[in-house]
Amino acid sequence: MITATGITKNYQRGAESFAALKGVSLNINEGDFICLLGPSGAGKTTLLNILGCMDAPADGDLVIAGQKVVTSGRRQLTDAKLDRFRRKHIGFIFTDFFLIPSLTALENVEMPLLWSGKPNRERAKELLASVNMDHRLNHRPTELSGGEMQRVAIARALVNNPRILLADEPTGNLDTKTRDTILDLFDHLNQQGLTIVLATHDHEIAERVTQVVRLNEGRLEG
């Protein structure tokens, strides 16, 4: 599903260049549920953004669903094509949910459909129902709890029917009980065939997930 080879990424910090990823190679198969485990600053977010086509690596190859995205550090798709590709294949979830405060739960979920040019309220409702949020359709984010907001965000990430879900510390702001319901939801989605990559520094999560990839100081371990 995703093949990354020799991915590097440098950040400019003032005059010096800082290597956040130092040659990461990773193969993710369809239907995998992978936990990307590593301490803070290891480069998890950086790697996830590259896998999600939101950021470009300095060097390396990236192939997603058979599409060459990056070859030897060079983008293979134009901006517009990359936008469309990303929308079609990849769903994103963040620690801070990133819902639009002025829109209701339903409108937030429907928004990505707007971008793909086919707004569909029913689909948005279905998805909210599948994450057990159908009782909060018309609530705004400020009127929802953290766990509820994350469930709305998951519904939104899935609305375009992506095959890959990238989750960056999705339970970082949640208590352990809420965290477990979210993880159960992930398990459920994974069983339906969704490929999931979850980045976290939480070892308890890593224990629940079968495939764990350890990242430290920009390198994969073990």
Binding site: M54, D83, F98, M111, L114, W115, S116, A157
Partner: peptide, 16 residues
């Protein structure tokens, strides 16, 4: 800016 970045992250293209 943050919200726009987020809209892009969940599928909005430049032209959107």
């Amino acid at each position: 800016t943050k919200e726009i970045g987020m809209m892009k992250a969940v599928g909005a293209s430049r032209s959107d």
